[in-house]
Each structure stands twice: as structure tokens, then as C-alpha cells.
């Protein structure tokens, strides 16, 4: 039922998981995540893989209390659709934020965090999450 993490699968996806690599359509110019062989918007087959913008705003979010097996330690999980500054939309959890402080329009930045861990013996899967800009007062 709950499968163990596949080494090959994690390896294959690492560009998107570590560096937020998505697709860019050479015809309509839109960017998207996850990458797909054909542009999901205009249908062009001319797409390339690019690193997407690492900041964006929360378009919508869900504070999730009923979680899948293996995610209880992270609950409540705030899932969000983030619209990146380059226009791509990303679905990912938010981290390092109190759920009651999340609002649509909130600026967030991408970080790499643990997403799931196969008990004491299996793999650790890292992936993109978003957090409010931190530290709030730094001049980056």
C-alpha cells in the first residue's frame, strides 16, 4: 500500500526537487512546473527545462489536518499554490510558518527540505517547499 521511496525515481526528479527546474515554452513563453514534454498551455512541443524563479506569492492554500500515512509529524501541513515571479505555478507545502499567519498574496521563497522519510532504514526524499522570506528584516 504505502510504497517505499524508489531510488531511481528520486534520482530522476532531482533537478526539479533541488533546483526548481520546470519547463519553459519557446512558443508562448510561459513557464510551468512540473516540467512536461508539451506546453500545458499552448500545446507547443518546443519546450526547454529552466530553473524557475525562487520567489513568488501564495495564490491559495489549505491548512491540512487529515494527512496521509507518514506525514503526521508534519501536520498541520499548509499546502499552497505559489505563483512564482516568472509566472510559473508550483504546488508545494509551506514551511517555517504558523498556519494562522498564512494569507493569500503572501511573499514566499523556495527552500529545500525533507519531504518524506522511509522509516529508519529507507531513503530521505528532499524537495521544494516555500517559506515566508527569512529573515524578514535582512537586505538581500
Amino acid at each position: 500500500m504505502a510504497y517505499r521511496l524508489s531510488p531511481a525515481r528520486l534520482w530522476r526528479e532531482k533537478d526539479s526537487r533541488y533546483r526548481l527546474v520546470g519547463g519553459m515554452c519557446r512558443r508562448c513563453g510561459r513557464r510551468f512546473y512540473p516540467p512536461r514534454p508539451v506546453c500545458p498551455y499552448c500545446g507547443s512541443k518546443s519546450v526547454e527545462r529552466v530553473e524557475l524563479a525562487r520567489q513568488g506569492v501564495v495564490e491559495t492554500f489549505a491548512i491540512t489536518y487529515t494527512v496521509q500515512e507518514g506525514f503526521r509529524d508534519q501536520a498541520p501541513i499548509v499546502y499552497a499554490i505559489v505563483k512564482l515571479d516568472d509566472g510559473a505555478r508550483v504546488f508545494a507545502p509551506l514551511t517555517d510558518v504558523e498556519p494562522e499567519k498564512v494569507h493569500t498574496g503572501m511573499r514566499v521563497e523556495a527552500v529545500v527540505r525533507r519531504v518524506r522519510v522511509d522509516d529508519d532504514h529507507g531513503l530521505i526524499a528532499y524537495g521544494i517547499k516555500f517559506r515566508p522570506l527569512r529573515p524578514a528584516k535582512s537586505g538581500q
Binding site: A2, Y33, A62, Q68, I77, Y79, A80, I81, F91, G127
Partner: peptide
């Protein structure tokens, strides 16, 4: 267990991977 099975209606690599339940996706 049922939540996990139902979640497979979502995208495995970029939604279910994060533990997203089906309710979470609809809540968005």
C-alpha cells in the same frame, strides 16, 4: 490508509509526494 489510497487520484510525483490529501487539493 484510505486517505493515502484516495490521494493517488492526484499527481504522484509533485502532489502525492508531498503527502497532499485529496481534501487539501480541493481546499485550494
Amino acid at each position: 490508509v484510505i486517505t493515502t489510497a484516495l490521494a493517488q487520484a492526484g499527481e504522484a510525483e509533485y502532489e502525492v509526494f508531498y503527502g497532499a490529501s485529496f481534501a487539501a487539493l480541493n481546499a485550494l
